[in-house]
Design a protein around this nucleic acid. Sequence first.
DNA 1: AAGTGGTCTAGACCACCGT
DNA 2: CGGTGGTCTAGACCACTTG
Lengths: 263, 263
Amino acid sequence: MGHTIKRDLMPMIKNSIQTKPPSGNVPAFSPLYRQIKTLLIDQLDAGEWSAGEMIPSEAELAQRFNVSQGTVRKAIDEMAAENLLVRRQGKGTFVTTHEDPASFFRFLRLAADNGEPVLAQSQPLGCTHIVADARVANAIDLPEGAPVVHVQRLLEFDGAPVVFDDIWLAGELFSTLTLEQMQTWKHSLYRLFESQFGVCMVRAEEHLRAVPAIAETAHHLGVAVGTPLLSVERVAYTYGDKAVEWRRGLYSTARHHYVNILG
Amino acid sequence: MGHTIKRDLMPMIKNSIQTKPPSGNVPAFSPLYRQIKTLLIDQLDAGEWSAGEMIPSEAELAQRFNVSQGTVRKAIDEMAAENLLVRRQGKGTFVTTHEDPASFFRFLRLAADNGEPVLAQSQPLGCTHIVADARVANAIDLPEGAPVVHVQRLLEFDGAPVVFDDIWLAGELFSTLTLEQMQTWKHSLYRLFESQFGVCMVRAEEHLRAVPAIAETAHHLGVAVGTPLLSVERVAYTYGDKAVEWRRGLYSTARHHYVNILG
DNA sequence: AAGTGGTCTAGACCACCGT
DNA sequence: CGGTGGTCTAGACCACTTG
């Protein structure tokens, strides 16, 4: 037969793990540290610790889960590599937050051609509560007709408009979002979502293509109709790989470019 | 004073590491496993093991470097995370190769809109040995006027042209590259570079923008002049962060898109 | 069975941060 | 100083591959 972890973690949770026997031909063996990682992610998802907060020390977690510190360490290592946690030597381990300077506009891969650091300013244009059409429903895994919030906004770099965004958000999580709220907010949208709605974006997937500017977009970005624009479609995920946002950004790449590092 | 590692690695190499005292206000402390990682990368760079080959076992390396297996393991962990090495349980640890199916067109982020897997075919159009102009020289860190190889080629997906590439290579490394050689080659260019020139691309940085098609490109890609194309400029690096290639690809995104995962 | 990487432990000590 | 993460060790045992 198969590979099961027989170790007890915490008495109260030991039954929640490793329940699946090696069914079919999928081994489904999960080492202790990965089970612990899963537990920690569940606790993040449940809001046990909020963004920016310190989680318990490795020693404490080791005791709590009844494993060695090295095992906890390996779980945290993986989570730090996925940007879920941030380790700070001498201080502790913290939940990654978009409030952290290092995470300002963490998912915005635009850079100025002249190399100067970009300072983005968000200019909200609209916020309407509607229902999901097929395309949006499919992107963020909702039934068609489910409530969604549609946001339009302009991103300006040094006062010049560079990105026009259409954003759709899962309605349940953002039912109270208003245009005024965004207009008085001075930081990134993800920082707003995190601090006001408790929704922290941790991962995203983008699809890029080149498209001609249509009249409305051309107007907002101050370019001629037909100007090639970079279309960036993004699905963003919170803890537990839940898709909660779909957006399409149209980037004017006259003086900026999209940067990507290939490992 | 400061932090120096006092451990002897190998007798023959112990003098090569940790020579810098904590000058200025830079601690410059390097843990053992990172010193070992540097040594291993140097050996990869020197061709000690070629792409696809198995490197010595962790136990052997531990003995060779006079450290514990766990320390070697941590060095290899980092290298595996950077795609320099691939671990295979029960078999060994191997140098990452573009011959591996998982690495075919490893840096090509194009996907078909309909979700079907893409099968790329390279169509070489030209190969000339010239000297570097300022732009190319700057990109791959050569003096202006240094020899470079200029390659033009078309990438076809299912017979349809999708990418037009202009590629510049460091001349010293590819002095014997010919058009015929590429025309008879059935696989990716990076696989050719690796197996015929011993140059393995391990990392790249891309800058993307949207541009209108000019006449020549439009002709090659079968689109109208002015059609928005995705311009992808790439600098590719071998071991030791040496830039050896600069290219600009023009992607027709009518039926394909560029995929990017944001961690 | 022998050899490889993968997991887990227990403990020592170091580097860094705050008080 | 005590608490945190960071490094390193030595050894046991597990999982996977090959002969």
